[in-house]
Amino acid sequence: LFHARFEQAGLVDAIKDLIQDSDFHCRDSGIALRNMDNSQVAVVVILLEAGGFLPYHCDRRLNLGISLTSLTKIVHYAGDEATLALKANDNPDTFNLVLECLQTGCIIKYDIKSRDIDQEHLEIPKTDYAATITIPSAEFQRICRNLSQLLESVANEASEERIKFSSSGDIGSGSATLRHNSDLTGPIALTISLKYLVNFSKATALSYSVTLSLSSEVPQLVEYKVESGFARFYFAPQIGE
């Protein structure tokens, strides 16, 4: 039997534009998801430890193949205040989704067929980054959204005290600068697609702050800590031609 109740259903919204289907690996320690987007440019890794759910019960290993497109629609219509529960019994072909609105007591139940997702395991090597910078997640989202209105990619520069996001396109250029008090091994400069950063920043509601782990020429990591877990977004670097 598997039963998990989750109060941060907004997590689904943060990843739905990157991945359409995913295996949810359910273990007694919690739920994990690791998936690459179709363009092979971004990877989403989510870990939700059992302690973050009330209740959490999983007495055997279970892989639920879930359509995030469908899950998003279900969660969207439930509203922000709803909690989301996943239940599965010994039949691995279907699972139950239960949405509960605590304010009104309304309960919506679905029986959903588990999708057969032929998903390969992805090995992510441990990386030492030149800069690990933590900034308010709302500021990060504001910067990404603002610059992306006019421009396509962003150059990140970080020094001891400031991180600078700058961007240029046909209409001109723009930049945003933010103070931080994180450790850097040295100044860095790299370019990232703004479209993807805007996508990652949809996880803003999950956490007050976001941590950017940056080095030239290796995948960048954008991480949101959630209660008893994390949502990590890896992004392949752009290189000059």
Binding site: M36, Q40, V41, A42, V43, E120, H121, L122, E123, I124, P125, S153, T191, S193, V218, P219, Y234, F235, A236, P237, Q238, I239, G240, E241
Partner: peptide
């Protein structure tokens, strides 16, 4: 001109 790399050059599928 910037060219987008694939993550598969960094991460391997097992």
């Amino acid at each position: 001109v910037q060219k987008q790399q694939s993550l598969l050059s960094f991460f391997t599928k097992a």
